[in-house]
Nucleic acid binder design. Structure first.
Lengths: 187, 187
DNA sequence: GTCATTTTTTATCATTTGTAAAACGATTCC
DNA sequence: GGAATCGTTTTACAAATGATAAAAAATGAC
């Protein structure tokens, strides 16, 4: 996915505004297994995924819980760092070799105060992430484990193929054993 | 809570920008039990709560699920209507007689394109709601029912007092029977 | 290909949570 | 005051999920 596609998918910008945004974006690659963002740090960059798949997880008590997946076109961000300049709760791990677009939070913040189009682009970004998070919250609260898995399978079949099932089960809020049972039933 | 306090809590505006925002805000009151926003409609207003408490719920299958509470200083909004101009998933019911500040979405959208401060105010609003939703999502996924109740009791003791327990249990993602069991254990 | 390691599935039992119905308490209505 | 209604708790039982261990399958290194 090109950076122009990613930018315009969030909110179409004029050529001028898009260029001034792109001026601050660089391309980087990291190997599978790399930890892109760390829970214990206040992160200063956000990333857009050109190619690859990543997960966000927290270390709770003894076991880690995956609560988000990102793939091509998605934005990798520590919301806590970005919004409140506080340490986030998530580590971001690359589950494949990844090609990413990097943008410094500080540069973006500056643009928010200079360019009304980019300010509205930032608004739209937050709004869209909010909708996604809200939908997932409602799903987690309303549906049981089988329904959640069935829905994931329907809406993101590639995810289930590309990602280890232990991460999927964690994402669904159940144990790996439970997920296995559910998968066995469906067959 | 005054409207100036509510506006500035989200993101401090200059007097000029705040005034142009306030020009579009009116005060309304509705009685307990009133349905402020409807799931089946594309809503055209958002509200700020001056006084009172409200809940958002969805009718799923046969039983309704409460997934959000709002009180003094909170914003009542159908995110789907606001962001995507689509029908939301929630009804909003007033749990007490309420005093509200009303703002037409259309007026706000217009201001977003005219005033960079207000555009950034809208961005900050979405970002803050996003953080809240993300925290709740993580809580729902990471913590068990007792921990979630304990946390609610700690962080919003007034809520537990002001709201019926059947709504609280629904909000926690458990049955009323389970909540009763949890409450019995704590004593 | 073979071996070692990791991941997933299966089986068993314990625990948690849900369902349904009854009991209790508080409030409202006549 | 008494009957009816609503909200909450309790009880008994059923279903779902978790914990643990072990087997099977898949993956990766050499």
């Amino acid at each position: 996915m090109t950076i122009d596609q990613i930018i315009n998918k969030i909110y179409p910008l004029s050529e001028a505004s898009r260029e001034s945004l792109k001026k601050h974006i660089t391309e980087v690659t990291y190997p599978k297994g790399h930890i892109l963002l760390k829970a214990k740090k206040i992160e200063t960059s956000i990333y857009f995924i050109k190619k690859g798949i990543v997960r966000a997880f927290s270390n709770l008590a003894d076991n880690e819980v995956t609560f988000w997946f990102g793939k091509e076109g998605d934005t990798v961000i520590s919301m806590k760092s970005y919004v409140a300049r506080k340490k986030g709760y998530e580590d971001i791990e690359l589950l494949e070799n990844c090609e990413l677009y990097e943008l410094k939070t500080q540069d973006l913040q500056k643009l928010f105060n200079e360019d009304i189009q980019i300010a509205n682009w930032g608004r739209k970004f937050a709004e869209q992430e909010l909708i996604k998070t809200e939908e997932r919250l409602i799903f987690l609260q309303f549906k049981n484990a089988s329904e959640r898995y069935a829905s994931l399978l329907k809406n993101s079949p590639d995810l289930v193929k590309r990602v280890q099932l232990r991460h999927i089960s964690s994402y669904l809020g159940i144990t790996q054993v439970s997920l296995s049972r559910i998968r066995a039933e469906i067959k």
